[in-house]
């Protein structure tokens, strides 16, 4: 009986969680005139006009491409620098290790708004403004510390006897690291990549500040729906729905890894 109550509570929570998203879906399938004309719980005259408009206008769909390029770049950069560093923090004791770790974490606490303007100036000075790499690099500010933090946790869970045995067997550090160690913590690498993807994908302020046209993210282009005639709710909702899709796809593909990662008791 108790189990049942729990499940009912959870289902109610899931419905509340999905309701706002459902509402946006409802709006995205109606024309703006239809939306403003009457209130309805489900779209009575379904139209895909909003979606068609987005997919036929290159400035719209290039927004998605831009976002995906810099998110992927950021995930690759963050992981490739964080892996060796996390190994160093989990295995070695060196001068300034604790201070360095704390300093890294403080960058996770910096108000992004603080850095928006100096970033703009920095990247325009070195001529990287309005490029994907600029956004990817700027997101490293909060993703690299997070990646080091998470990976260090996973790596500390692997007993050091494994490293010692491999070194005695004549493995060099890079070979051991790539062929033995990384495969052992692949669940952790997956979880980390997931978090890097997530935080880079959802960030807007830096992405918008550092881009003009060529690398502009979709979430910034969305603001264009506010035109002289007022807000086009249908179009805004359709664009919003489309920004949810890549994230939803990513979770869908990693769902079993997540379940496994959670079974290991680490995030």
């Amino acid at each position: 009986m108790k189990v049942k109550k729990k499940t009912i509570g959870l289902v109610v929570y899931f419905i509340l969680l999905m309701l706002p998203i459902y509402w946006m879906l409802n709006m995205s399938l109606r024309s703006n005139a239809d939306i403003l004309a009457f209130f309805t719980l489900y779209p009575k005259n379904i139209t895909f006009a909003n979606y068609i408009k987005i997919f036929t206008d290159s400035s719209w769909y290039m927004g998605y491409v831009n976002s995906i390029i810099y998110v992927a770049l950021n995930t690759v950069i963050s992981l490739s620098v964080a892996l060796p560093a996390a190994y160093a923090f989990s295995r070695y004791q060196f001068v300034g290790d604790k201070q360095l770790f704390f300093w890294l974490l403080t960058n996770r606490m910096a108000p992004v708004a603080v850095f928006a303007l100096p970033f703009f100036q920095l990247y325009s000075t070195i001529g990287l403004l309005d490029t994907h790499i600029a956004v990817a690099l700027s997101h490293c500010l909060f993703n690299v510390p997070l990646a080091v933090w998470i990976l260090e946790g996973f790596m500390s869970g692997v007993p050091r006897e494994i490293d010692e045995t491999a070194f005695i067997d004549g493995y060099s550090l890079p070979r051991f690291f790539i062929t033995i160690f990384i495969p052992m913590i692949r669940a952790g690498v997956g979880v980390t990549a997931f978090f890097c993807f997530m935080f880079s994908w959802v960030e807007l302020l830096l992405a918008r500040t550092l881009t003009v046209t060529n690398a502009k993210p979709i979430s910034a282009i969305m603001t264009r729906t506010i035109s002289a005639t007022g807000l086009d709710y249908g179009l805004l909702a359709a664009a919003g729905m489309l920004t949810i899709v890549p994230g939803a796809l990513v979770i869908w593909f990693v769902r079993n890894h997540m379940a496994k990662g959670f079974a290991l008791g680490r995030v």
Partner: peptide, 28 residues
Amino acid sequence: SLVTIALPLLIPWNTIGTIWIIFTRPDI
């Protein structure tokens, strides 16, 4: 349940604002 729960975390932050504008406006 993991997929359902994680979904809001992967929505861009300004889309979150958009979702809630559309959800809470008194007219629509």
